[in-house]
Design a protein around this nucleic acid. Sequence first.
DNA 1: CGCCAGGTGGGAT
DNA 2: ATCCCACATGGC
Length: 238
Amino acid sequence: MKMLLFTLYEKLLAAYGPQGWWPLPSRAGRKGFDARGYHPGDYSWPRTVPEKFEIIVGAILTQNTAWTNVEMALQRLRAEGITRPADLAVCPTSRLGRMIRSSGYFNQKAKKLKVAAEAFLSPASLSMSRAPTREDLLGLWGIGRETADSILLYVFQKPFFVVDAYTRRLLERLGTVGPGMAYDDLQAVFHAGLPRSHELYNEMHALIVEHAKRHCRTKPLCAGCPVARFCAWRGKNA
DNA sequence: CGCCAGGTGGGAT
DNA sequence: ATCCCACATGGC
């Protein structure tokens, strides 16, 4: 049985509730934020340059990496007063690498952060106050499709659906798409199947991540899965 | 111990 | 265009 994407959204939202992405650990515990910086049901963040930049940094640091490892790195950066593009741009790459060590691939990511910081700092290049194009972002070394879309969606509230490894795994198992579909084609499935709303894309992506962690893992835990009745995988292997 | 985690760029085929 | 690999830490 083929499942509409909006039905998937409704089932996941009913099961897990609003997720409060993108998390801002720097705001943890403040009004409107939980202990880890999530803000469920409030899509009005980020507002300030440090908040926006924290998302850009987080989006780069979380590439193929667990968020808990990123949280440690963000905390370290904050403790050292690195919260704006200008702070990062003047920080030596070697020192930066030490600060973000916990996020893995730290030499590569230190370089990626510098590239992004300099791009958003240069008057001739990108601005934190107006959305760049997707092509602008993809032109930066270290920013690929998922990171570009994360920035467009979660920093600039532009309706670009973020496709990650979880999204692919879930849709392939559900039987919604075939294996090995290209990123942009998979994104097009969401753009065609859902209203073009940044709040909806925000929540949907976050819900998929939560669902993939709880049930649709590498080794699936189908017991109690809220979308099992729609799933082509259910029953296989086990 | 091995596997996995909110990818990306570069080089070979 | 597509496949393959390096990049690296921390949690379970």
